[in-house]
Amino acid sequence: MRPSARNTRNRDTRSAALGIGALAILGGAAILMQRRTQPKPRPKPRRKLRRSAAIMGASMLVDSAMEHFRGGFHNKAMLAAPVLAAASTLGATARAPHMLPVHATSVAVGAAGLGFHGYNIAKRPGGFNWDNLFYAAPIGAPGGLAVTGLLALASDAHTARHGRMLAGFTALATLAETAEVALLHFRGAWHNPAMYLPVTIPPIAAALLLEQALHPNPKTRGAARGAQRLMAAMGVVGTGFHIYGVSRQMGGWHNWRQNAFDGPPVSAPSSFIALALSGKAALDLMEGAP
């Protein structure tokens, strides 16, 4: 074939094809494994929730540390986010009651952070407009810290009723996360077709989970579980995409001090893995696993 002089979308379409292929294999394997390993005892919901909180916390730690470093920590309160994310991540490995003050603080600071970020957006010229939503403090990000704290606290859940509540909460958190992804991928002009995946799969997973929360139905629970597994696989593939995304910025990883910040955030997609674990834990609880 004659080499082309013009700029083309080949890099995007090829990487999207590769990524979607990888997702199909990984997600398919995850769903199939679920069937096969049915008789074997699953990890307890508590362990899943702790792992979920730890992954979410680690993602928040990296994200808030980097973003607040980018902001020069000009407000000392900006230190609170990575510090608490670190504490909640470590704390998630211990029994929740001992760590209650830590996780509760994470929830409170995350909620307060929403206010700080809202203020940061509002004070820029133009106020609450699209451009400031794109580039000022990310409006929903502190919610991730609150979610971390709540997931860690939820690891004591042990009844089916707890499971329903957790399913509802996880579904709503997934939708919030989807909204943030939609905003940022819109900012990126959906330049890679695969950028539509994290605004497609998570809402489906959230809807199936929400259905279980509102009307527990063992018949469709398998589908809900499969969707959670697919979403977790998407978190893995998404991380790969973001690593590739940084590499194709000017200067690539060699210029990481710019591109790790201006490029796609490498730690972000893993939050979907955390939410998927939480969703599965919720379904486990509803099925009676303590």
Binding site: R70, G72, G251, H254, Q258, F261
Partner: peptide, 14 residues
């Protein structure tokens, strides 16, 4: 080049 700048706000420098 290749590295440009990240911090675009007033009183902020890389």
């Amino acid at each position: 080049s290749p590295r440009g700048y990240v911090r675009m706000q007033p009183n902020r420098a890389d």
